[in-house]
């Protein structure tokens, strides 16, 4: 009973440390979590709980983007330490594969990096192809990795048109893969016109949009 209470406290404190992006507290709490026998899924849920709170605050304008990114960084670091906990099984958590990249000709990858970080934190298996990725590389990765989701980013009106070719080729080679697009010059009308299944307006809403697509709605 005492141990369970201890776990609840650690879970609460882990979430709070993520919310407050307190690196020092998180380090100490990982030791507490380890000694109190917490499992990897429990620790992971606690970390995501804190991050989700900040994400909701960002959606309601009660947090800034850097606040969210600080918490995201803490979660990413934390997830990297989960292997020392019992019950750690990477494959059981990361059951959906997302291939992500910035299309050819576009050197802007900060937004893509944030989205990749969010997918990773929320338990997706992320295959990050980087920036200026060719159509062939996207298609090859989607097929080889058996990707359920392909996330494409473009930040310029001159490069977003490349998406149409990538999506067309993916439709032929991997028809079951859902394609979600995002970036400054895009909107939902353009996303549809390019043949994408979904449009991520921002890093805040990419999860809802991905979940909506996965649910088939």
């Amino acid at each position: 009973m005492t141990v369970e209470k201890g776990n609840e406290t650690v879970v609460h404190d882990l979430a709070e440390a993520v919310r407050a992006h307190d690196e020092r507290a998180l380090h100490a709490l990982f030791d507490d979590a380890s000694t109190s026998g917490m499992t990897a899924p429990e620790v992971r849920r606690a970390l995501i709980g804190g991050l989700e709170e900040v994400r909701q605050n960002l959606m309601s304008n009660d947090a800034s983007i850097p606040d969210f990114l600080l918490s995201l960084d803490r979660v990413t670091e934390g997830l990297g330490r989960l292997s020392r906990f019992p019950g750690y099984d990477r494959s059981s958590v990361e059951d959906t594969t997302v291939v992500i990249g910035v299309v050819e000709g576009d050197p802007h990858d900060l937004g893509k990096n944030v989205i990749a970080g969010i997918y990773g934190a929320y338990g997706y298996r992320v295959v990050d192809l980087g920036r200026e990725v060719s159509r062939e590389t996207f298609v090859k990765a989607v097929v080889q990795e058996g990707a359920e989701v392909l996330a494409l980013s473009a930040m310029m009106s001159t490069t977003m048109v490349v998406m149409r070719d990538v999506i067309g080729e993916v439709r032929i080679k991997s028809p079951g893969t859902l394609v979600i697009v995002g970036g400054a010059p895009l909107n939902d009308v353009l996303a549809q016109a390019y043949g994408a299944d979904g449009y991520a307006e921002s890093a805040i809403t990419v999860l809802e949009e991905t979940e909506r697509l996965m649910a088939g709605s």
Partner: peptide
């Protein structure tokens, strides 16, 4: 190293 730093 971190996303936050790159963003700032």
């Amino acid at each position: 190293e971190s996303l936050t730093e790159r963003f700032v």
